[in-house]
Nucleic acid binder design. Sequence first.
DNA 1: AGTGCGGCCTGTCCGC
DNA 2: TGCGGACAGGCCGCAC
Length: 271
Amino acid sequence: MPELPEVETTRRGIEPHLLGRTVTAVVVHQPRLRRRVPARLGKELTGQRIDTVARRGKYLLIGTEAGTLILHLGMSGSLRIVAGDAPLRPHDHLEFAVDNGRCLRLHDPRRFGLALWTTRDPLQHVLLSKLGPEPLSDEFSGAHLYAHSRNRRIAVKPFIMDSHIVVGVGNIYASEALFRAGIDPRRAAGRIARARYQRLAAAITSTLDDALRQGGTTLRDYLNSDGEPGYFRLHLNVYERAAQPCRVCRTPIRQLRQGQRSSYYCPNCQH
DNA sequence: AGTGCGGCCTGTCCGC
DNA sequence: TGCGGACAGGCCGCAC
């Protein structure tokens, strides 16, 4: 479900409720997520004060002196801050009670999400250490995309969705950024010129930034930590707009499959 | 090393 | 009305 704008919106939503709070209880209702929730999580985290609520790519990092809780929302995960006695919904797998009477709940019907615990630098964790740059940081640029795409035959759309190239670009924003940049999603990554990568990097940045300002994209079930949807859906140019007219040239938007994922593009605007 | 695919899960929708 | 199949904001791990 969530891409970078949704994860960052979630982070901003939960941070004020958690920062400086002490974890009073951890309840695991369903330990079978993408990986099994570590059995020692409750013992390690209970009694700890939350010092940081950070994000790296689509991973949320809840830091304490003893270690860091690493959360990933997968395809269908969401986090909510609720009253400690709020009724449990189906698929509320984890809850973290804090000392202000509230609790953080991980809800994830498909269970592709993750909850990990590390006592070391979370950025050195095996799942995080090889991630590419943050698209909203100065380390991300057209030059970076250009350099890493040389001799790559992979199509540009899955290329920019590879978190080892750049983090945070999922299936919606990959299509949207390629539309903004005027690049056909099927084009081989290694056959795109430097100048076009400058444009693509700018398109990725602006797309994610615009989506963040709108609180993310709600297509089906995404809600932020207050239960509110995101409004970037209204600004989507191609995603889930198959056969509808391009907002620029009126040509019908096309849909295709690239490695089991739907891609959308305008055959007139994108080459 | 890079590429592509299966698999992990549940819910919903669509065609028969 | 069931039932099967396709599909859904991700990404790891495994073959080639």
